[in-house]
């Protein structure tokens, strides 16, 4: 499913708006939307996040039992090879990855019916000593989304942070 783009679809926009508790009819009612300034159903400002649904390695489990079995075998093989080389099983990081910042620039609304395509530039990587979570490793990415006419629709910059320990507040 690589490169199929991010289709802005009506029922997806409706479900997303429900999940953020926003009952504005511009997100689901085409007749109402036609009377508004945008003139059509648009997506809420943070809908770009839902593009994860259309990425090949999105933020979701793969529920296909065949592929799950293949991955288990590959992981077991890799672990066995790593143990053979170093004499010990590899250890993962103690903490976890969290979303630290998100920035959007809107050039025009995301309109239902459009298919957006993206170009992503991996950005900087930096470290900081945190009081609550130990060493923090930050990294950012900038993604530009364009419509089928090649016009810029939205520019997204995300910052993620990997922590040493869980953060509880």
């Amino acid at each position: 499913m690589a490169d199929q783009g991010f289709p802005i679809e009506a029922s997806h926009v409706m479900m997303f708006a429900r999940s953020i508790g926003d009952s504005n009819p511009i997100y689901y009612d085409a007749e109402y939307a036609a009377t508004t300034e945008p003139g059509t159903i648009i997506a809420p400002p943070t809908f770009e996040r839902a593009s994860s649904q259309f990425r090949e390695h999105g933020l979701r489990p793969d529920n296909d039992p065949k592929r799950q079995a293949e991955r288990r075998e590959a992981a077991a093989k890799a672990a066995a090879e790593a143990a053979g080389e170093s004499g010990a099983a590899p250890r993962g990081p103690g903490g976890s990855g969290l979303h630290a910042e998100q920035h959007y620039e809107y050039h025009q609304p995301m309109r239902v019916g459009e298919v957006l395509t993206s170009t992503t530039t991996p950005g900087k990587r930096w470290e900081k000593e945190g009081r609550r979570a130990g060493k923090l490793v930050f990294s950012d990415t900038v993604t530009e989304w364009r419509n089928q006419q090649g016009e810029l629709v939205i520019t997204a910059r995300g910052v993620s942070v990997r922590t040493e320990r869980p953060v509880e507040s």
């Binding site: 400002p45 630290a100 959007y104």
Partner: peptide, 20 residues
């Protein structure tokens, strides 16, 4: 974002960002 769009109107935002 719901507070923002309720305040400024639909399709009116040009920038929105921040830290968690």
């Amino acid at each position: 974002s719901r507070m923002l769009t309720d305040t400024v109107g639909d399709g009116r935002l040009t920038k929105f960002g921040g830290r968690f």
